[in-house]
C-alpha cells in the first residue's frame, strides 16, 4: 500500500538496520567465493577462482566427485517431485471429487498426517530400510521423502481441485466423456498452476533435504549435496569458509534460479499451502 498519509522513511530505516546481518551474510556468501581476505580484515582484497577448484580438481581419496553428488541430488529431487506430484494429483482429485467408500476416513487421515511431524518417525524408518535392504540407496531416500511430503501434496491438490467448477465436469460427462477423460482433458488443465506450484515446492524441499539422506544414505555413492557439504564442514579441522561457501553457492544456484522464475507460485504455496 502506498498511503500518502504516513511517511515511509522511518520504517525503511528500521527495517534496513534489522535486515543488515542477513544482507551482510548474503553478500559475503557470494563475495567470499571469488576473493581472498587477509586474516583479521573484513574487506576482501584479492580476486581468485581458487575456491572453486572442487569443480575441476580430482577429489581427494575417499571423497566423491562433486558432479556425481550433483547428479545424485538431481535424481533425488526430480524423482521425488515426479512421484509426489503424480500421486498427489490422482489422490487429491479422488478426495475432492469422486465417490468412494471410507472417504471421510481417508480425508481425516490425510489431514492428520499433514499436521503430523514426520521427522519423529526417522528412527523406525531407518530400521525398516535396514531390514528391507534399501538402506544407503537413493531409492530408499526418494521413497521416504515422497511419503513424508505426500500428505501435504494431496491436501494442496485437493484444495486446487475443489476450486474447479463442478459444471465443467458435468458438462464433460454430458458431452459423452468418461470420468477419466474428464479428469485428464478438462479438469487437469484447470489446476495446472497448482501442479506447477506443488512441483516447485517439492523440488526445492527435496533439493534442500538434509536429515533424510544424512541418516538413511550416508555413504559416498548415494551422497547428495547437502550431506556432501555438511561432511565437508564437519571433517575439516581448520575450516576453509571460502571453499565451503563456494560449494554452498554451487548448491544454492538451482534454488536461486527457481526462486527467480517461480517467485509468485512459491509465495502462493507457502502462504496458502500450510493453511490446512
Amino acid at each position: 500500500m502506498t498511503s500518502s498519509n504516513f511517511r515511509s522513511w522511518p520504517l525503511f530505516l528500521v527495517l534496513g538496520v534489522i535486515s543488515m546481518p542477513l544482507v551482510i551474510m548474503y553478500v559475503y556468501l557470494f563475495v567470499d567465493t571469488v576473493t581472498d581476505t587477509t586474516a583479521g580484515s573484513l574487506i576482501p582484497d584479492r580476486f581468485t577462482l581458487h575456491h572453486w577448484r572442487f569443480l575441476w580438481e580430482e577429489p581427494e581419496t575417499g571423497r566423491v566427485s562433486i558432479w556425481t553428488v550433483t547428479l545424485n541430488t538431481f535424481i533425488f529431487a526430480i524423482c521425488t517431485t515426479l512421484i509426489n506430484v503424480s500421486a498427489s494429483v490422482t489422490a487429491g482429485y479422488a478426495l475432492s471429487r469422486l465417490n468412494m467408500p471410507f472417504k471421510r476416513f481417508f480425508l481425516g487421515g490425510i489431514l492428520t498426517l499433514h499436521a503430523f511431524p514426520t521427522i519423529t518417525l526417522i528412527i523406525s524408518i531407518f530400521l525398516i530400510l535396514q531390514m528391507i535392504g534399501l538402506y544407503n540407496t537413493l531409492i530408499g531416500v526418494i521413497l521416504v521423502k515422497t511419503a513424508l511430503e505426500l500428505p501435504f501434496g494431496i491436501w494442496i491438490m485437493k484444495g486446487f481441485f475443489d476450486n474447479v467448477p463442478w459444471e465443467i465436469e458435468m458438462a464433460g460427462l454430458q458431452d459423452g466423456a468418461s470420468r477419466f477423460t474428464v479428469w485428464w482433458k478438462l479438469v487437469l488443465p484447470q489446476v495446472q498452476p497448482g501442479v506447477a506450484a506443488l512441483a516447485v515446492f517439492v523440488f526445492l524441499s527435496a533439493w534442500s533435504e538434509f536429515i533424510l539422506p544424512q541418516v538413511l544414505a550416508p555413504s559416498g555413492s548415494a551422497q547428495v549435496l547437502s550431506t556432501y557439504l555438511s561432511n565437508l564442514i564437519f571433517d575439516d579441522i581448520k575450516p576453509d569458509f571460502n571453499m565451503f561457501k563456494s560449494v554452498g553457492v554451487f548448491y544454492a544456484l538451482p534454488v536461486i534460479v527457481v526462486y527467480l522464475i517461480f517467485n509468485k507460485q512459491l509465495m502462493n504455496i507457502y502462504g496458502g499451502g500450510t493453511k490446512g
Binding site: E167, I168, A171, Q174, A177, Q190
Partner: peptide, 20 residues
Amino acid sequence: VSSQKRNVGVVFQNYALYPH
C-alpha cells in the same frame, strides 16, 4: 443409464465452457 450414454445436451447456468 450413465450420463454419457443418455444423449442429452445440457446448457449450464454459468455455461461451463472449458477455459483452456
